[in-house]
Design a protein around this nucleic acid. Structure first.
Ligand SMILES: [Zn+2]
Ligand SMILES: [Zn+2]
Ligand SMILES: [Zn+2]
Ligand SMILES: [Zn+2]
Lengths: 133, 133
DNA sequence: TTACATAGTGTTATATTATAACAAAATAAA
DNA sequence: TTTATTTTGTTATAATATAACACTATGTAA
């Protein structure tokens, strides 16, 4: 019997949340996601946060820590989010994921003076985007 | 008349909050600071958050975004916090500020491909500290 | 198939983090 | 002094996130 390969391993709630985040033009907050999916039967915060946690874990989305908001991963290298960098416009709140091999390489191989070996980093740049400056 | 130079321009609440953060061994959360200073007459969250905001603004402390917690600045170069980097142990929660001229220079002069000019960045590394690995 | 384990769901309640708004007091500058 | 600015104290509330528990769906292996 031919073995079915499961292409899409997302659950219903995970897919709903991912769809919304991917369609959004900017970072979304958990409760704004919640309000947007209440018509689809998702009624309570834990359902959103569980989906968000899973999507982060598998690298489909990232959390912008300085904004408590979530964006879809736009970088195909990002299977697991262990090396993330973002540019954030302080005026219009536009957020872009930075996919720069040399930056990522530089930081991934960075060793600090205290003998700590890093597994993961998150970098957030702030400034004004083209449109806002 | 000789002009008095004000050496220490912190207000009472700002100084109380800074003292606690500087004495702490690790990052402190806003409400844990609040509970610790209630004996000193500070009773409500806004008093803490205002002090924190001011201390961040003048570079005396930094916020660890991934932990919603605050640490004292240990880097004398950090008058204004526009270039911050931290190492965070995922096991014991130890946080160290990274003061590395070359890292800071590399990131401060980083230009992204979308024509955005950055004014500020925050970098958080995660891993296991010496003790925990 | 059955049995078992794992992952996901729905729900209620609550914990944690942060800000709005406004009047009063302290401090700095003119 | 007068005036402006900053800081404080206070109450209330907003925004973000998790605990706990019963239940359902799905995957794995005997
Ligand atoms: Zn990504
Ligand atoms: Zn902008
Ligand atoms: Zn610093
Ligand atoms: Zn450690």
């Amino acid at each position: 019997m031919t073995r079915m390969l499961k292409e899409n391993n997302l659950s219903k709630n995970q897919q709903i949340v991912l769809d919304i985040i991917e369609k959004a033009k900017g970072p979304l907050k958990a409760y704004s996601i919640l309000f947007n999916v209440q018509k689809k039967g998702i009624k309570a915060p834990p359902q959103i946060y569980r989906a968000l946690d899973k999507l982060i874990e598998i690298g489909k989305i990232h959390k912008i820590e300085s904004k408590n908001a979530f964006v879809a991963c736009r970088s195909s290298n990002c299977e697991i989010s262990k090396a993330t960098a973002f540019s954030i416009c302080e005026s219009c709140e536009k957020v872009d994921e930075i996919s720069d091999k040399s930056l990522s390489k530089y930081l991934s191989s960075y060793n600090d003076k205290k003998g700590m070996k890093f597994k993961k980093f998150n970098l957030e740049f702030f400034g004004l985007c083209k449109k806002c400056k």
